[in-house]
C-alpha cells in the first residue's frame, strides 16, 4: 500500500539527518514508503539536512506549530493519494522498526487510526514528570473528547485512507495530539494502540512537550470547546 512517513520538523538540523538516514536504511530493506519532512519554518539548516538525506521536503514560510505541520503532512498525503500515513518524530526518539508494527492493525483491517503508545512498554521507564503530564493529558482527552487512550501525546501514529481524507486539524500547536482524538470520535474511526519503544535523550526531551506549556494547552483546548 502506498505509504507516506510524515516528519514534522522545527529546528532539528543537528539530528534530522541521522534520523532520516536510519529511517531510509530501514525502509530500503523492510518496508516501501515515501518520506516527507514538513519543515515548520525552521531558522536553522533543517531543510539542507533533510535535502542531504534525499527526502521530499515541504516548507512552511512561518512557524505554525506541530498541529499545523501534521495538517500539512496529511494534506500532502491526500493530494498525492496515499493510502497510509505515519507521523514520526524528527528527533530520533522513535524506532523505524516499529513502523510495520504500528501499521499492522490497519493493514489487517482492524483499525483506521493507530497510536504508538509509550505507556504500553514496561521495559522503558518513562521519566516521572512525563508520566504525570501524560496522565493529565489522557484524562483531559477523555473529559473533553470522550476518547480513552494510554498515550494521548504520542507523536507516532498511523492513519488509513479514511482517516487521511477525513481528519481536519484546527489546532496549531501541541494540543493537536489531543484534538486528533476528537476527530477520531467525530468521524467514528476505529482506534487501536500498539506498544512502541522510545529513546529519551536530553535533546528529545527539550524538543517535545515541556511541562510548563501544559496549562497553555488546557486553555487552548477549553477555548476551542466553548467557542
Amino acid at each position: 500500500m502506498k505509504t507516506l512517513i510524515i516528519i514534522p520538523a522545527y529546528n532539528e538540523a543537528s539530528v534530522i539527518f541521522t534520523t532520516l538516514k536510519e529511517l531510509k536504511a530501514f525502509l530500503a530493506k523492510a518496508y516501501a514508503a515515501d518520506i516527507l519532512v514538513v519543515n515548520d519554518g525552521s531558522t536553522d539548516a533543517t531543510v539542507d539536512e533533510a535535502a542531504r538525506a534525499g527526502v521530499a521536503v515541504v516548507t512552511h514560510i512561518l512557524n505554525r506549530g506541530l498541529g499545523g505541520a501534521i495538517g500539512t503532512g496529511l494534506a500532502y498525503a491526500r493530494k498525492h493519494k496515499y493510502e497510509l500515513a505515519v507521523t514520526f518524530d524528527a528527533d530520533g526518539q522513535h524506532e523505524p522498526n516499529d513502523i510495520p508494527t504500528i501499521l499492522e492493525p490497519i493493514t489487517a483491517g482492524r483499525a483506521d487510526v493507530v497510536i504508538g503508545s509509550r505507556f504500553a512498554d514496561p521495559s522503558k521507564e518513562m521519566p516521572l514528570d512525563r508520566k504525570v503530564l501524560l496522565r493529565i493529558s489522557n484524562l483531559l482527552t477523555y473529559i473533553l473528547f470522550g476518547a480513552y487512550t494510554t498515550d494521548s501525546l504520542s507523536g507516532f501514529r498511523a492513519f488509513n485512507k479514511k482517516a487521511i481524507n477525513g481528519i481536519e486539524i484546527k489546532t496549531e500547536r501541541m494540543e493537536v495530539s489531543n484534538e486528533l482524538f476528537s476527530e477520531i470520535k467525530r468521524l467514528k474511526l476505529r482506534l487501536s494502540e500498539v506498544p512502541i519503544r522510545v529513546i529519551y535523550t536530553d535533546y528529545s526531551r527539550s524538543k517535545g512537550q515541556t511541562n510548563t506549556n501544559g496549562i497553555n494547552i488546557v486553555f487552548k483546548l477549553l477555548l476551542r470547546l466553548f467557542r
Binding site: L4, K24, L27, A28, K29, A30, A32, A33, D34, I35, L36, V38, G41, G54, V55, A56, V57, V58, T59, H60, I61, L62, R64, G67, G68, G71, T72, A75, Y76, K79, H80, E172
Partner: peptide, 24 residues
C-alpha cells in the same frame, strides 16, 4: 487562517516528486 495560507503555499511550492523506494 494563517496556517491554511502557509499550508497552501507550502504544498504549491513543492515541485519535486516524493522520494521513492522499491518494494523488496
Amino acid at each position: 487562517e494563517i496556517t491554511k495560507l502557509v499550508r497552501k503555499i507550502a504544498l504549491e511550492e513543492k515541485k519535486d516528486k516524493p522520494h521513492k523506494k522499491k518494494k523488496k
